[in-house]
Design a protein around this nucleic acid. Structure first.
Lengths: 254, 254
DNA sequence: CGGGGAGTTGAATGCAGTCAACAAATGTGG
DNA sequence: CCACATTTGTTGACTGCATTCAACTCCCCG
């Protein structure tokens, strides 16, 4: 992990701010919000951000890269709780008990903005909009848990895979677009393995493989070397058992 | 629904405050917090608190009764997202988009304390501890989602049922105790049906039935007329694939 | 006493898991 | 640049947990 504490880029000119918890703040509020941040941290692919049992000290906002949040199971497996993409909030745990219940690992090279938790109460007094902004992001993440829980509990494997792929695809499209990167209608960066999908959905990677092949044969997805293309989002949404508009609303940011 | 706006009981003397988001506030802060609340609302068994698609206007803190939060599925089924017991927080959705993604229904006769969302920002300025308190409760609820997601995605039906029953049992024990009700080592109030368990876990009620019988035969649970008894919590925790201490920490409150 | 909801039981079906072997892609050192 | 090792992805056969459907019982409540 490398860390920068000096000459941080200003939040006002952050290209993924729209997707982050800062998206509701105006310029005046953003300049106050800058003081809340303490550093930027860089993690290499495969490096851990923190481990289950650690004490939360910083709130993280993802600036670059994909992060996996997971819990370790007794049988050696892991359950992925969610994927954090640029704009996402991690480790927002204030209050009495700050022991983290999950680990976080960088799937691709990752940059994070860090905000010390101990500054939270003080900053909120001066900038109550920050409490609204962070709570708003928390609600969004809760709603994502709601739909993930629903999908995992109630639907067959094909629906689960379609839902996960489409969710991540939509979010990565937004990220690519706000970075001015390649045409999002084309392939987008998609750095996860079949095993990650299986760990997220609670099905075996062998079964994920079969489902992916089936989705490819139906022309619903195309994927190769860490890229994903969804030619017809409406069609995939149908398989995912969710209305595309609803999913977009939930994935676009707070 | 009946509503009271006058002569509300003070938060300072609330018997389930320890289990609620107010548990970190001192007496001075609590007197300020009183002004945040607007009313108490009563819902009869089977009555809806709100529906998917409604606009969130109040934050709710459960004072009495059990509430089910659920999403409706296209096939007419529902997915239960969580059970809200006394002390639990509902409908905490601030920020831009206030459209609710789920419905809530009272399982038993229910009383709620309501806090208008539009007062949130103002109250936080005067009482920054409130932002910490509500965020703390939100983190706790997120962690419950984490363990529920893990259980549902990764474990067989027996583990799922054991986990749900034990979680709710532990929470209801705390509630009974703080109300000074009957010996919690004995049966506790447990107002849900087998179908509720099946809707929460994503398995059929027929299978829930078979699992419950198996758990009863093993002497791990006893249940009749809306009461549950767990003679050996450690034993049930083993089946639930979770350490009892961890589960207790998560269920006891923020 | 009768009706309806909740719970119980059995038999047949099917989706996803398991195990084992192999193929392809990726990375590493000589 | 090639040889090798390791990881990731693919395929097939068999097994098993959970679903489905149908019938039935129990119990509460009017």
């Amino acid at each position: 992990m490398r860390s920068i504490t000096q000459h941080l880029p200003r939040c006002e000119s952050c290209c993924i701010r729209e997707a982050s918890f800062m998206n509701q703040l105006n310029l005046n509020q953003l300049s106050k919000a800058n003081a809340f941040r303490s550093s930027q941290e860089m993690f290499a692919e495969g490096e851990h951000l923190y481990y289950e049992g650690d004490i939360a000290q910083h709130i993280y906002s993802v600036y670059k890269g994909w992060v996996i949040l997971y819990k370790s199971l007794e049988n050696g497996n892991r359950q992925i709780l969610r994927f954090a993409l640029p704009g996402d909030l991690l480790c927002f745990k204030v209050g009495r008990n700050k022991v983290l219940d999950h680990s976080a690992i960088a799937v691709s090279d990752t940059s994070l903005c860090t905000f010390p938790i101990e500054r939270y109460k003080k900053t909120v007094k001066e900038l109550p909009e920050l409490a609204v902004a962070l709570s708003s992001m928390s609600s969004l993440i809760s709603e994502r848990y709601h739909s993930m829980l629903t999908t995992i509990a109630s639907y067959p494997a094909e629906t689960k895979v379609a839902f996960l792929l489409l969710s991540l695809y939509i979010r990565q499209c937004v990220v690519s677009k706000s970075r001015g990167e390649a045409d999002p209608d084309c392939c987008v960066h998609f750095p996860i393995k079949q095993e990650d999908i299986s760990d997220a959905l609670g099905i075996t990677s062998i079964h994920v493989n079969r489902v992916l092949q089936s989705l490819r044969k139906k022309g619903l997805i195309e994927c190769k070397n860490k890229c994903l293309k969804v030619p017809d989002q409406e069609a995939l949404a149908e398989v995912a058992k969710i209305e595309l508009e609803v999913l977009e609303e939930m994935m676009l940011g707070p």
